[in-house]
Design a binder for these strands. Structure first.
Length: 421
RNA sequence: GUGGGUGUAGCUCAGCCGGUCAGAGCGCCAGACUGUGGAUCUGGAGGUCGUGGGUUCGAAGCCCAUCGCCCACCCCA
């Protein structure tokens, strides 16, 4: 049996790697424009960080974490990171970033791991681009991270994305919200799905975003969380929307957009692709003013997002053309016993900064030409016995088919000139 | 974790009720054109028919199991 890659993982081959490169370049470029600095945290962390930073009652923690014992007698429990925010929050605290000018604006890019059943747009190792603004609860920060996320998609030329927005309040308004929901649902839970009957006691907010038809039906007249916001949260929400309007970022209010955990506060948003099937969310985020304390630090407000890059790639494939795989600038072909010259020439060309390649299959000249074409070489330098006796090689333009003899010693310079380098 | 579909050459797939069924196209390599790409023609390499059992005189095709992939549920990115 051949060894295959683990389930839910992928190999990224050269053609696709180009797209990744394109995306990565864009991420770094955009974040520079928006004033975010890159942070790289370990791919594994103490399990405890996610238990507390993601929430013990979440699917992620309950069944999707790759957790293992570290080596050694008292090896602690470690977990491959299932998301990026908790590690960034941890790093903020651990490196005393609160001592820097606030807010601290960070972005990250890298693999995340979740044990889940793979499906279109869902993998066990997947990549996220995320950004966080730490140390301020100013509504303009909420608007900025949203703007950055949207700018990313726009720069990739992706259309039809929808920004959904909601506010889920703070520990002050949450009890009110909860009470109203309990009141509304208490006489109706019986009709809901089994999951929701459980959620009812644990986390009534979650009843709102259940995808079951019956539950949607039952919840259709449910109180809107936004109506329960305390004055502070209400004002914050108004400000966020005002800033989004100022930046001409359209959004759709979605009162059913909910985060389950207490340290998620105020702004919640999601970016979806209508009609993309089951995995229609390409990104999401929100404010988490309670997170830092939940993982044992001081109270530091934060807001951020995470975008799924596999899903972004998927969209790009549907919506835009593939980038051309660039070929070598020059292919050095051989006719007769000229291998030594070819070897030297390729080396010289490369040393001069020109992308050069050659045959390694012992092909005849005809086959070398065919090969050069398949590689998409712009030029062919033909080292033929006859010409070499006169100190010449042939330069052929593969686009036009024109060719001429040039002096071997001039080859590198001529190529450099003709390739514009 | 649940349900449905699927697995034959590198790729896309054909293979009828089990009996020359190991196939096609594309790709790869080569030749025709012995020193010149794109077109055409010809030839070649390449497959334990996902894997392991079972039924049978005989299995790619039937049965069971297992693994992978796809789609959906759940959840998320």
């Amino acid at each position: 049996m051949q060894i295959a890659r683990p389930r839910g993982t992928r190999d990224i081959l050269p053609e696709e790697a180009l797209r990744w490169r394109q995306i990565e370049d864009l991420i770094h470029h955009l974040c520079r424009l928006y004033g975010y600095g890159e942070i790289r945290t370990p791919v594994f962390e103490a399990t405890e960080l996610f238990l507390r930073g993601v929430g013990e009652a979440t699917d992620i923690v309950e069944k999707e974490m790759y957790t293992f014992q570290s080596k050694g007698q008292r090896g602690r429990s470690l977990t491959l990171r299932p998301e990026g925010t908790a590690p960034v929050a941890r790093a903020y605290l651990e490196n005393n970033l609160h001592a820097r000018p606030q807010p601290v604006k960070l972005y990250y890019f890298g693999p995340m791991f979740r044990y889940d059943r793979p499906q279109a747009g869902r993998y066990r190792q997947f990549h996220q681009f995320g950004a966080e603004v730490l140390g301020t609860d100013h509504p303009a920060a909420d608007a900025e991270v949203i703007a950055l996320a949207m700018a990313f998609f726009k720069a990739l030329g992706l259309d039809g994305l929808q920004l959904q927005l909601n506010s889920i309040g703070c520990p002050l308004c949450r009890p009110v919200m909860r009470e109203k929901l309990v009141e509304y649902f208490s006489v109706r839970v019986a009709e809901c799905c089994p999951d929701c009957r459980q959620r009812f006691s644990r986390n009534p907010l979650r009843l709102l975003d259940c995808k079951e038809k019956v539950c949607r039906e039952v919840g259709s007249q449910a109180p809107n969380p936004v109506d329960c916001l305390c004055p502070g949260c209400g004002e914050h929400f108004r400000q966020v929307r005002r800033y989004l309007d100022l930046m001409r970022l359209p959004y759709t209010l979605n009162p059913r957009l909910v985060r389950g955990l207490d340290y998620y506060t105020k702004t919640a948003f999601e970016i979806i692709v209508p009609g993309a099937g089951a995995q229609d969310a390409v990104g999401g985020g929100g404010r988490y003013d309670g997170l830092m304390q939940a993982i044992g630090g001081r109270a530091v407000p934060g807001v951020g997002f995470a975008l799924g890059l596999e899903r972004t790639l998927r969209l790009m494939e549907k919506q835009s053309a593939s980038p051309e795989v660039p070929g070598p600038t020059v292919f050095v072909a051989s006719a007769g016993e000229t291998q030594d010259v070819v070897t030297k020439l390729v080396g010289d060309l490369r040393a001069a900064g020109l992308a050069a390649d050659r045959d390694y299959m012992g092909r005849g000249l005809r086959a070398q030409m065919r090969y050069a074409q398949k590689l998409k070489a712009a030029y062919v330098l033909l080292a033929g016995e006859e010409e070499l006796q006169r100190g010449r090689v042939i330069l052929r333009d593969m686009q036009t088919g024109e060719q001429k003899e040039i002096r071997l010693e001039d080859a590198v310079n001529v190529l450099r000139a003709v390739a514009g380098k």
